[in-house]
Each structure stands twice: as structure tokens, then as C-alpha cells.
Amino acid sequence: MIVSQFLVLASLLFSLGVYGLLVRRNAVTVLLAVELMLAGVNINFIAFESVIRDSLASGQIFTIFVLTIAAAEVGIGLGIVLLIFRNRATGNVDELDLMKW
């Protein structure tokens, strides 16, 4: 196995996530796309780790950090979505343009 195959796979996942982030209307699905991007990043970390193999296993440790922060992000993100839904009765991000000129 070569490391590039994982890197290409990771960037494919990441760009699929970006596509979803830009194209989805429903806020929950936007968050799903963000999770996809983070999954791509994690594959990158693990792939590099398996090449470098430093004594601290930094790649894996950073993956754990990413997972943790992603969990926090989902929690807060869904809280915000819930709040928006409660106040605006919509979960679609393109209908939220309060910040418009």
C-alpha cells in the first residue's frame, strides 16, 4: 500500500463534504456534510501516522482530539439549529438571511 491512495481518498471525502456544505439547504444535513469533511481529515492524520510512526503516535492522538472537538461541535451546532428552528420555524439555512444588508 502506498500512502497516496489514502490521501486521495481523504481529499475526495473532504471535497464531497464541501459540496454538501455548499449545496444542502437543511441545516442538519449541512452539519452531516461537515462531519464528512472531518472524516476526511481524520483519514489523512491516520495515513500520515502510519508512514511516520513517531514514538508518541501523534497522528492518532490528534485524531482523537478531532473526534472530541467534532462531538462538541455537533452538540452546539444542533443546539443552535434547534434554537433557530424554534424561533424561525425553519431549518433551512438559505431562509436565514437576517444578516443581509
Binding site: V18, L22, V93, L96, L98, M99, K100
Partner: peptide, 17 residues
Amino acid sequence: LRFLQTGKVQHYAGAFV
């Protein structure tokens, strides 16, 4: 310039990308 400010978060994200 204010017409760039659509208020839609995905426009901003696209510009960011």
C-alpha cells in the same frame, strides 16, 4: 459593496472555499 452581503451562510462558505 453591501450587495455582496447576502446574509446566506452558504454564499460565505463558498467564497471561503
